[in-house]
Amino acid sequence: MSAPTAAQSPSAQALRDAFGAAIERVEVSCGDTIVYVSRERIHDVLAWLKETPTQDFDYLTDVTAVDYRDAERPLEVVWQLRSLARKADLRVKVRLDKDGPLDVPTCWDLWRGANWLEREVFDMFGVNFAGHPDMRRILMWETYQEGFPLRKDFPLRGHFSRAEQTRQALAVNPEAHYSLEELATADAYRNLPQDMRERLRRGERGGPE
């Protein structure tokens, strides 16, 4: 519940002073301050929050996304930040229109903890984090065909029948990523040409079968 008298974190005002119109909205919900930022400036905002001595958000608590039941509402990517020394929390959000590209810059360069967190958001929601060193699925297998599970348009039991899901699951090679070239490819995925990425996505694998 957002009480009208609930205090905003002072970081919200500091952000407004520093970034002006890029800060779209500030809310307070259940005592937490939430700042909505435009997608273009999000990396600058996060870097500013981390590096400015008065803010000092050195700890990235979480990166996640929210897809609302109302199909009109945009998808939100959420960063939970924390300053250990100042004992302060802040929630930063970016709204992504579902019709447009679901693309945000990575914050892996700022916090190493973002690595797997962003991979999970990609896996579950399909949000791509530009500049991430290893943008692959993490919880579902690499060649998972059904889609992005936590989206609201994804049914609870998936799109395919159970037999089809079983067949696809059994067809996955449990030793994938076992070959050296596989590992190397994961690191260099960004630099691969498009058609090779397509072939990898379709399940083509080098190395021992």
Binding site: W141, T166, Q168, A169, L170, A171, P174
Partner: peptide, 10 residues
């Protein structure tokens, strides 16, 4: 889970 299915089969 389905991801573990080929493993248990193997």
């Amino acid at each position: 889970p389905f991801k573990l299915a080929p493993v248990i089969r193997r």
